[in-house]
Design a binder for these strands. Sequence first.
DNA 1: ACCCAGGCCATCT
DNA 2: AGATGGCCTGGG
Length: 254
Amino acid sequence: MKLILRDFDLGQIERSGQCFRWQPMGGGGYGIPAFGRFLTVSQTGDEFEFSCGEEEFREIWFDYFDLGTDYGKIKVRAAKRDKYLQAAIAHGAGLRILRQDVWETIVTFILSQNSNIPRIRKNVADLCALFGGAFPTQAQLASLGEQTLRSLGVGYRAPYLTAAAAYFAPEVCEALRSMPYAEAHAYLCGCKGVGVKVADCVCLFALHHTGAFPVDTHVKSILAQHYPDGFPLQKYKNCAGILQQYLFFYDIMK
DNA sequence: ACCCAGGCCATCT
DNA sequence: AGATGGCCTGGG
């Protein structure tokens, strides 16, 4: 099916460090695995062609791509006088915050700590390859020994994955979805290997708490350089996380 | 060689 | 409470 969609750039989203399993297909198209489905999308300007039918699009992909949110409205909330933020928004005008699977996002961002985007992609791909390319369930991940996990090159994160498989049972992941931000964040941090930053990434990229504001080394340096008094989280209540994504993307692309 | 990469934990003051 | 070192691994 074909659609015209605004504020949406597949390439920017794929490079923005929130998802690590999209497969570039050439010509700006991507193969996207999520929720047990596999979608192919191609884009020319604001024209999109999706491989699925209307029903699957409505049930799965509309929410996944967060198409119910008007990013144009978020962009105009950014202060005009904040030239750095304005530049970041202009640079990443097609970014969106995906609504990804909770379990997959937890595992992915545990792997992200002290790592980099190409390596995270490889770790996730190698992990999925053990299960025929599908993302492992909690039980499947729990069945892997520390040696097997380490053989994937995840290093000291191996026991964190095992801990997560035990801590985040499917019903727990489901429960997280209905918790308010503070409660979800605290619960996430209760798992060994999940700290403040990883928990914020899960809150933002899976639970869609768009006020969550993950601070990594890049954002930390952005704050030091451009926001000496801190980022105005109060002013941008409920959208600070989206603005963070523009800032982060602007930084890593430079 | 060295340092750092979308951190977190344990162990101190 | 806050600061520091160690940790797996790969790339610059």
